[in-house]
Amino acid sequence: MKRNENREGIKGMANPGRYGIERFAYWLMRITGLGLLAYFIGHIYETSNIVNGKTAWENMLSMTQTTEGHVLLTLVIGMCVFHTANGIRVMLGHGGYGVGKPARPDYPYTPASQNNMHKLCIYASIGLAALAMMYGMSVLFGE
C-alpha cells in the first residue's frame, strides 16, 4: 500500500506565521541567502564583462545607475545586513551560546532557547537592515 508521506515541503518553510518571530527569522535567512547567492552570480557576470572592453563594461555599469538598479542594490544592502547580523546570532546559538541552561521545566514551559535575547537580536537585525537600506537609498537616489 502506498502511504502518503504528508510532508509540507517548501510550503512548510514559506508559511512562517505559525511559530513566531524565530520561524520568521529562519524563513528570512533562507530568502536572503538565496537572494545574495543570485546577486553573487549576477555580480560575477557583471564584473566579468570588463574583459570585453571599456564600452561593454560601461554599458553594464550603467544598468546599476537606473531606478531599477538602485532598488535592486538597496534590496541587496538589506539582505546583506540582515543575513550577517542574524547569521552571527545563529552561529553563536549553534555553538551553544545564549540558548539558556537546562533546568527542570515549569508550566507553561516557555522554552529557554527562544529567550528574549534572541528575539531582541532578531528585531535588531531587521532594524539594522532597514536602517542600512534607508542609508543606501539616500546615497543612491540622493545624487
Binding site: 529562519y26 555553538g95 537546562p102 532557547s113
Partner: peptide, 24 residues
C-alpha cells in the same frame, strides 16, 4: 538551522532546540 519551532510546540517543556545546540 535553529528555527526553534520544535521547542515552541513541545507540550512537556523539553526544548529540543536547546539540546541540539548544546550537543553541537
Amino acid at each position: 538551522h535553529f528555527a526553534g519551532s520544535c521547542s515552541q510546540v513541545c507540550p512537556k517543556g523539553v526544548d529540543p532546540a536547546m539540546g541540539i545546540q548544546l550537543l553541537r
